[in-house]
């Protein structure tokens, strides 16, 4: 049982580190910071998978994972004197609800094409839209948590 959880988390960490580095390169993060982006991304996504393994809803698991990323990236930022946002954006990318966002808009276009309010498609669209908004909110607020709680009146760097 514990063995399978450890495997699940490590497997997850490996496969979320790759997109973190890939998108860090799209955002032109300097080369020497790429390993830290990978580390933060792996920690974030595997935390979320770990929590969801114990039946936590995806929104709360995302919030906790984003808070972990927030604290870790502030630590990195202090070490290298670079803005914490730089590590955080790449680390967050594997958790962005892209599939939910696309499903929402695809359902929206299906609804337009059907020429009537189809209850099934409307329900599908509403559900996906709510998931998108709440997961994104959890990500952004979780990331901002250190500055909301501890760095209220002082600078991080």
């Amino acid at each position: 049982m514990t063995d399978s959880i450890i495997f699940l988390v490590l497997h997850d960490a490996l496969f979320s580190a790759i997109p973190a580095v890939g998108f860090a390169m799209v955002f032109n993060v300097p080369k020497r910071f790429l390993p830290y982006c990978a580390l933060a991304g792996a920690m974030g996504h595997s935390t979320r998978t770990f929590l969801m393994h114990f039946n936590m809803p995806i929104e709360w698991a995302t919030f906790a994972a984003a808070a972990v990323v927030g604290f870790v990236t502030i630590h990195f930022a202090k070490k290298h004197l670079a803005p914490p946002l730089m590590y955080a954006v790449a680390a967050i990318i594997p958790m962005v609800p892209g599939t939910y966002a696309f499903n929402t808009v695809i359902a929206l276009i299906q609804l337009t094409a059907a020429n009537e309010i189809n209850p099934e498609i409307s329900a599908h669209m509403t559900l996906n839209a709510l998931k998108t908004v709440f997961i994104l909110g959890a990500l952004a607020v979780g990331l901002a948590l250190p500055s909301l709680l501890f760095y209220r009146n002082r600078n991080i760097l």
């Binding site: 998108f23 955002f27 954006v89 967050i92 962005v96 892209g98 909110g137 952004a140 607020v141």
Partner: peptide
């Protein structure tokens, strides 16, 4: 395969 088009960074920036 279409996930490379998700504007993740603007969305996070928007909410924060």
């Amino acid at each position: 395969s279409v996930l490379l088009l998700v504007p993740g960074f603007p969305l996070i920036n928007a909410i924060s």
